[in-house]
Structure formats: structure tokens, C-alpha cells
Design a protein around this nucleic acid. Structure first.
Lengths: 217, 217
DNA sequence: GTCTATAGCCCGATAGAC
DNA sequence: GTCTATCGGGCTATAGAC
């Protein structure tokens, strides 16, 4: 199997991401991870000489995904643009959920995201506000300009903590359970009563179509 | 010191609560807890024969505090009632923050709150909606009745995750840092533009006065 | 590159003297 | 009630054969 070196490393990273999301970073032992990968524990240490190194690798992937998402700007069709942005945001929060959720677990020097989160959140506020402003400019959303930033921040919070919220409510949140869809619908309640009927319908339709929730790895 | 038996047990519970909130449930070892209490580790096992027993004791306190808060109904002055409710909710979320935040850490059989959280959240929605309806009935809030429940749910989410949000933004969230105040102000942005000017001013004043953030132990 | 074997550490929990 | 001393177990990480 020596020819699949890259393959093994890749498999470790992907398996770790899924396992951390499901069980929590702190609850996954290296033994359990190795077993889930179908390799011996020692082999795991060959590819990542410390548990922290594996975490950093995942952090880098996350950072890359975020930059791609943050580059999404409102286009000619602000409704379609907004739907696309929503999907990207939720893919992110779901795919790397443990990075946010389990920050306490990785020994306090939790830099992987703690150092970047403030900047990412700020830029997300700005991005969401820009998309919402595009809806306002298009005459599709009736909202005071000077209250758009508050709306963007509140929308970010709802999107960010939606999965945790539904989990706390006792609802399943893993892939295919519709928790992402419910989160998107919940965030819509922040402003849909001020939204153009057609635009609201299109957003609802777009969210309903996100049934095939695939991870943009 | 044998006369202070009850005192020691009490001190353990209170120290544990504070320590769990600060450092995270999983990050506090029995050794560290004993040290913080100023007692030997063995003595700790005398009072709580298992780590889980200590957690349950804290869970019971939390449950009791919640029931007291849930009993708050809108009074003759709906603005004052709402301010009082907000303070109680935040005392709760702050005082027992780790119970929500660190659910992953206590070995999956996380019953202390996981079993009750759905019911508590549902009743909180209902309670908040009742208080908001009282504001509408008093002519102080302009909001469609059939959208009040969504507002109550969104307000609960913002209140519930406000501290986590500000922590992620890199802001301090411990007592006396004003994070609770910021959370309350953030939740106000959900509907203050539809609020009577005088009522809005009174709520802002009430929140500003919550500087002396004391825990209703 | 992958494996087996094991070192070393910290933790939760127990035993028993005072 | 409080202490000291210690056990057993699980975890991260290393050593070295294949």
C-alpha cells in the first residue's frame, strides 16, 4: 500500500473531520480515529506527529473554504446570490462544526480558529449586509438602511448557532436530517415579512432544494 | 473544622460552578477543583463519591433556578416585567453556562440538562411570547400577532448564544465585562425599531443599570 | 509506510490512618 | 471530616521491526 501515501493522509484528515463533528473533538481518541481509518495507531503518528498537527491541518482547510465563501458578492440576481451565499455559509458551519463547538477541548491554546474567528465573523457581517443591501436596492426588501447591519449580525448569529439550537431542542442535526434547512428557514423569519412575495417564495424554494446536502470538500 | 461540614460541601458546589464556567467542565480536574477549594482531593470524594454526582447537584440547582424564572408573568407594567425577565434569563445563562456549553464533555450520558433542555426552551418561547404580547396589548410594541412566536424564538436564540457569540468575537465574557449587557442590547435590536420610544428608553436604562451583575445564587 | 509494543502521564476513584 | 498514599485505566506519543 506504499503507493497510497497521500491517500492515507487524506483519509485520516477526512475521517477525523467527520468523527470530530459527530462525537466531539475531545471524545475522539487517537485509538478510535485509527480504528475508524482502518489503520494502526502508530501509522497515524507517522502522518501527524502530534494531535495538534492534525487539528491544524483541518484548520487550514477551513480557512481556505471560508475565503472562497467570503469572495461571493451579490450578482445581477440578488435573490439567487443570497441563496448561494446561504448554502455556502451553512456548508461551512456544518462541515467544520466541531472547530467552533469544541474550542474548549483543544488545550486552551486553541488558535486554529480562535485567532481568526473575530475577523471571519466581522467579514461575514459585512458580506451579509452587502447582500441584504442588494435586496433593498432591488426593491425586494423593505428595511431601513441604518438597521441593515443589525439585521446582518442577528442573521449571522442565527445561522451560526442554528444547529446547536436544534440539537438542544432534542432534534437530530446530522446530515440529511433537515437541520440545516430548518436553520435557514429560521433565519428567514428575521425579515421575510418585509420581503417581496416573489423573492420570499424563491428563497423558500431554494432552501427546500437543498435536500441533497453535499459537502463541498 | 468538623463543624463546617455543610459549609465545605456548599463551597465545593459553588467553586465547581465558577470553575466549570471559567475553564470548561472537561478542563477542570478533581485535583484542580480540590486545590481551588483549599481541601485535599480525598475529601472531595467524601462529599461527592463520583464526579457525576457533583454534576447532578449543580443540575438540580439549575433546574430550581429555571422554575423560579419561568414563573415570572407579565404584570401591570409590561416594560418593567420584561426587564426583570431579561435579567433572570441572563443570570441563568451566565451562572450555569458550562451546563449548556460543555455538554459534550460529560460522557455522552449528559442527562443533567439534555433531558430537560427541550422542555425548558419551549416554555421559554411561550414565556417570552407572553411578555412580548403584553407589550403589544399595551400599545407599546407594533408587531403582527402571528409573528410574535418567531420573534420570541429568535430572541431566545440571541439571548442563549450571546455570550458564546461575543467570546467568538474575541471579547471578554466573564462577570463585570459587560458581555451580558451587550447580549441584552443585541436582542433588543430584533424589535426596538417597532417599540414605543419611551418603552425603548426604559429598557435601555434598565439594561444599563444591570452593571452590578450579581448572581442570584 | 505500516505495523506491534510499550513508555509515561494524568485522571478518576479507593483505602485507610488520623 | 479530612488527610495521605496509591491503584487501575485510558490517553498521547515513541521505538523499532518489517
Amino acid at each position: 500500500m506504499k503507493t497510497r501515501a497521500k491517500g492515507t493522509r487524506e483519509r485520516i484528515v477526512e475521517t477525523a473531520r467527520a468523527l470530530f463533528n459527530e462525537q466531539g473533538y475531545g471524545a475522539v481518541s487517537t485509538a478510535g480515529l485509527a480504528a475508524a481509518c482502518g489503520i494502526a495507531e502508530g501509522n497515524l503518528w507517522y502522518h501527524f506527529k502530534t494531535r495538534r498537527a492534525l487539528l491544524d491541518a483541518l484548520g487550514e482547510r477551513f480557512a481556505a473554504a471560508i475565503e472562497v465563501r467570503l469572495a461571493l458578492v451579490p450578482g445581477a440576481d440578488p435573490v439567487a446570490s443570497y441563496a448561494r451565499l446561504l448554502e455556502a455559509v451553512m456548508d461551512e458551519f456544518r462541515g467544520f462544526r466541531f472547530l467552533y463547538r469544541d474550542q474548549r477541548s483543544y488545550g486552551e491554546h486553541a488558535e486554529p480558529i480562535a485567532a481568526h474567528a473575530p475577523e471571519w465573523l466581522e467579514r461575514t457581517f459585512v458580506q451579509l449586509e452587502a447582500h441584504l443591501a442588494a435586496l433593498v436596492d432591488g426593491g425586494l426588501l423593505d428595511w431601513p438602511r441604518d438597521r441593515l447591519r443589525d439585521l446582518a449580525i442577528n442573521a449571522t448569529i442565527i445561522l451560526r448557532y442554528g444547529l446547536e439550537h436544534y440539537q438542544e431542542l432534542g432534534e437530530p442535526t446530522l446530515e440529511g436530517t433537515g437541520a440545516v434547512r430548518r436553520t435557514l428557514l429560521r433565519h428567514l423569519t428575521l425579515f421575510e415579512h418585509q420581503l417581496d412575495r416573489g423573492a420570499a417564495a424563491r428563497l423558500h424554494a431554494a432552501i427546500a432544494e437543498m435536500g441533497a446536502e453535499a459537502l463541498a470538500a
